[in-house]
Design a binder for these strands. Sequence first.
RNA 1: GGGCAGGUGGCGGAGUGGACAAUCGCAGCAGACUGUAAAUCUGCCGUCCGUUGGGACUACGUAGGUUCGAAUCCUACCCUGCCCA
Length: 385
Amino acid sequence: MKKFAIIAKDKETNARVGVLKTKSGEVNTPLFLPVGTLGVVKTLTYEELKQIGIEAFIANTYHLYFRPGEEILKKFLGLHKFINWDRVIFTDSGGFQVYSLRELRNITSEGVEFKSHIDGSIHFFTPEKVVELQKIINSDVALCLDECVEYPVEYERAKRSVELTTLWAQRCKKKFEEICLSNSLDNKQLLFGIIQGSVYKDLRKQSVEQILEINFDGYAIGGISVGEPKILLHEIADYVSNLLPEDKPRYLMGVGEIDDVWFCVERGYDIMDCVLPTRNGRNGQALTSYGKINIKNSRFSTDESSLDEECECFVCKNYSKALIHHYFKSGELLGLRLLSYHNVYFMINLFKKIRYAIANNNFIKAKNEFLQKFYSSQNDENCEK
RNA sequence: GGGCAGGUGGCGGAGUGGACAAUCGCAGCAGACUGUAAAUCUGCCGUCCGUUGGGACUACGUAGGUUCGAAUCCUACCCUGCCCA
């Protein structure tokens, strides 16, 4: 059985609809992964995630290693049982923490030494260790340890990160296969390789070639959306997409702005994840059909309408902007939850629309209509001021 | 009636002769956030003008005074709290 099957392709673009098979079931692509770093999509219950209709989320190996820690994860035979979630879980390797915690780490070719962000204690992560941890977490899709570099970054440093990422990918793959061989009970976890290379096309090309050579179940593009201008993000995403094989899932890590999502799906990306719906939700931003709004703005204090008149989620059916505004201004936790729920719902719904549009050969039209509505209204708001 | 303490920007509260339009916190207003060290961070916050540098005006209970200069010193008054009669 193929692990990834493309079931529809847009005629005008490279956008495609597919199905990825994992040990916890199938997921439909293009797929949006909410981020649940510590095994939880912040503020939301698993019942709510199911109610929203999410098929998968991505947790983080680095963070789960610290809390709850290996022993507890082993005791529960993995994250699924610990959190009582039977759908798909991806795990990021900790490569992003190599970037985001760069003041607390030290890289050698052997691995990364982290100073714990929690208590300052020293921990050493190797590619092998990260694979083992993901086996313990027992996620459905594991990611190789990579070195995600910041932007801007000098060419030579980006080149070294590509080489290191390749070396680590080889070691991850080797360890992964060893564990699979020694444990015939469960060898259905998927392993994705990660492409690096910052904004340098030749390095991206080199990285793609080297990672493809190792052969993974899917290919992730990392080192993007780390502060580079949008034009570069698009340029690199576009460039790399043309180098990737058709028959494997393509995962663009960390991308989740609305226009970026459409842009990247159009180029044939199948999976994306992003903290924005949840983080920005906790910070007061709501995604709506007519653009982003900041619910904390005083103009919503008496607004009786829902966040998004076109949204079917329970928040939009039951809560006015004025009420959610009140929760935010008062520091009531329910506000964080409601916007997180709504925003994740919005993203999941967006991806449903995208899949539908591709399947019906209507991608470009759907994209233009969606984006025009989403962005024109923000302009209107600016004009009013 | 007497004694003591105190009255500062929307609020709390620093400042006790020049560096004060006045520390700081809260509230308020806005912005940011892209594989989550984030219920976080940043900016503005007397009034008016200026895109910036900056400028003008009004202000530390009220009214006078001393001084080159006062939120800061002096006098009187008003008000608040506590204590004594």
